[in-house]
Design a protein around this nucleic acid. Structure first.
Lengths: 194, 194
DNA sequence: CGCTGTTTGTACCAACCGGTATAATCAATT
DNA sequence: AATTGATTATACCGGTTGGTACAAACAGCG
């Protein structure tokens, strides 16, 4: 068997992610993708199959590399309150560093859910559920440590925090400045005060 | 001068809004629009000028008819806490009644801000600012009535509530069920407890 | 070298894109 | 009935859409 691959598939996927992330699925053309990925049209279809398949792959990879990795890292922490703060503050920091105001690829796609196929909907649903679950676990951990009063209902509060996070990420796309995002982060923490 | 108009421009605009609302600007074609508006291509360009101009008009009209109208109605209320609750609960009700899960046209467009022209960005910015201002006023009104403790900072809390609202509206697009939306609404009210 | 499989460039496809043009039809005022 | 302007249907424009086809160049293995 001769030489089995030349370009880096993951690198090409990450470059495709950048375009989908900013413009969304429909507004991104195959010409946009081949230019950004720096591979030929033929190679793209050979390696990924279709635009939809590439989008699916890009979204899943983004979700794994960013959201899932972060959550699994913070889950290990024993201070629940600190873990939640770090999670929110990380996104404020991301917004501070990103001059392009891309926000969150997952949230962007969640906004477009009614126009997405079931596989994508499933990916989004799992991601959001996992975030909520993370919040719930950290709240319960904080309660066991005595940092969070027992009057705070874990499930409902986790859901409310997820909503704040989604809002923060959407407003990061050019609708809010850094001070506003910090106010959102601090507001989320106030939900833990009972 | 002969008969000055035949079709109802506002009605046609509302029909265009439905399509833009669901699919977004890019994914909506002129064919989609003429079909939904039930007017001819020629009439559309004669009456609205371009796709962009139609979108702008549809968005502005939607914002006036729904968000602005609701806020101005609730502003008159003398119970600040009740006004905020009614505002949130109205969107939960809207989600309950809408089988298509359209969410909010303004929030959808805010998500797409990096790809929108300055006029649209301005409209979105004004709308979000007005909502935040509404929250701030109602918080201050609640504090004067003694319903909200003075430890609650009006501006920061209003910003946090705006984020929860944006999250609620985005999650209404198929990512969350009614109970989850109710938890978000109740979580927002907890921000007023100090 | 010869075989294999990838990459690349290019050409091509039918379909659609936003937008324009035109001629016929239509309704209401004069 | 004549005039006026909006509405309609249809055809058309150049450009782009996602996707396919194909030959040439390429790189590794036997």
């Amino acid at each position: 068997m001769p030489w089995e691959k030349s370009f880096d598939v993951d690198l090409a996927t990450d470059r495709a992610t950048e375009v989908f992330w900013k413009k969304g699925y429909e507004a991104t053309s195959m010409a946009d993708l081949t230019a950004a990925m720096r591979i030929n049209k033929g190679s793209l279809y050979n390696a990924f199959g279709s635009k939809k398949a590439l989008f699916d792959r890009a979204l899943t990879r983004y979700d794994q590399k960013t959201r899932a990795a972060k959550i699994n890292q913070l889950r290990a922490q024993n201070d629940g309150v600190a873990a939640i703060y770090a999670f929110f503050d990380g996104f404020v920091e991301e917004a501070r560093k990103d001059p392009r105001n891309l926000g969150c690829f997952v949230v962007n796609t969640a906004q477009d859910l009614p126009n997405q196929p079931p596989e994508i909907a499933q990916t989004i649903h799992s991601a959001l559920e996992d975030i909520k679950e993370f919040f719930r676990e950290m709240i319960e951990k904080g309660q066991q440590a005595g940092d969070i009063p027992n009057t705070v209902r874990p499930e409902e509060t986790a859901q409310a925090m997820l909503s704040m996070l989604v809002g923060l990420r959407l407003l990061s796309r050019g609708s809010a400045g850094i001070p506003a995002l910090e106010a959102i982060r601090d507001g989320a923490m106030r939900l833990l005060k009972g």
